[in-house]
Design a protein around this nucleic acid. Structure first.
Lengths: 195, 195
DNA sequence: GCCGGAATCTTGTCAATGACTAGATGCCGG
DNA sequence: CCGGCATCTAGTCATTGACAAGATTCCGGC
């Protein structure tokens, strides 16, 4: 019996998650349907519900995976470059290279916002950003470090959101998103270019 | 015959739009249903489709209204205070005080992204932001003014998005969103407090 | 080896929804 | 006053999410 036809799939949860990311990238998180997902994975229409409970559960799982991927990307960049600007660029790079995940991660109306795994994954990503800002020393005397970190997060998150929604592309300076994001991030970074 | 029972409603489009904003505020744009909307407005289940075509059309109309409201708020603040920081705060204030509109305006997967009215309304809002940044003189020598404006837009949009998604509230400094937004906006504004 | 419980997956079903069609109603200009 | 037309209703169909019940397979204990 071939692997695709046996009763027990073996790793259906992962297969569904992968197919979900593809589907979300095509039609967006809202229009993603559990039944289309099942169809593409060649399983019955109720199989996804068994693994994720409901649609909210599926998207929450995608969001958790997204936060984990983001954390890894940010952490690697922070350790490799030590640059706050580059961590910000990495945030944008993640959003551009994982559009389905990014489009899902902050849609609180489609997610189980109180899911423990989701909260933990989000906290880990936030932690990396905060330490990155703290070590960069961009906080000025008298400035609340939390406010500085929030400003940095807002800047890169806003750019990533606007880029993802297509609001930036049409009027952009013609640069690639990473280069444009770097220029934008430098505006905040004491307004001095980091070598 | 009472106004609510006559065949021709008189101003059904506006009534539907108002009800839609309320409904979106309760369940989010994705879960907003044309039929529930019709039920609340006491009309048949197909009436909304006549005015807006389909669900996408309804949400697009809400988004257009949102951009117009945003433009008015930004313009009033720009003329009244002349402060770039305050215009940014006004952006956040709009997002907080009109959560349904803000939650809809950038959901490109739920909108008619190529709708002429939508594009025009968005362009008007962007125009106000750009001129506000240009007049504030926050652009440093050698800095592309478009990049400065984009950074400012990203900052306030990111903060508004994170606040709306609840990512900021739990770890915030306990301030009201406007005050927190002002502190965040000041980080970008030459890093010097205005006034 | 095998047996029973549990996890996995399927089939069947129901209400709700979006979209479409045809038709009813009331307004407005000539 | 009448005819066209915008407005709104009623009916219908495919799709979807959610649930219930049952079939299949895996796994640990004996």
């Amino acid at each position: 019996m071939s692997a695709t036809q046996r009763y027990h799939h073996g790793d259906l949860r992962r297969a569904l998650l992968d197919a979900a990311v593809t589907l979300i990238a095509e039609v967006g998180p809202a229009a993603t349907s559990l039944r289309e997902l099942a169809r593409r994975t060649q399983v019955s229409h109720a199989a996804p519900a068994h693994h994720f409970g409901d649609k909210t559960g599926l998207l929450t799982a995608v969001a958790v995976q997204g936060f984990d991927l983001l954390t890894a990307e940010l952490r690697a960049t922070a350790e490799h470059t030590g640059s706050f600007v580059e961590v910000g660029v990495a945030y944008v790079r993640f959003a551009v290279s994982h559009p389905a995940h990014f489009a899902t991660m902050f849609r609180t109306d489609l997610l189980r916002a109180d899911d423990p795994d989701l909260c933990a994954a989000e906290a880990r990503a936030r932690e990396v950003l905060h330490t990155s800002v703290a070590r960069a020393g961009v906080t000025r005397p008298g400035e609340d470090p939390r406010v500085t970190a929030l400003a940095a997060w807002s800047l890169v998150h806003g750019f990533a959101s606007l880029w993802s929604s297509g609001s930036v592309r049409d009027q952009s300076t013609g640069q690639h998103p990473e280069e444009l994001a770097r220029a934008v991030a430098r505006v905040l970074s004491h307004r001095q270019p980091e070598s």
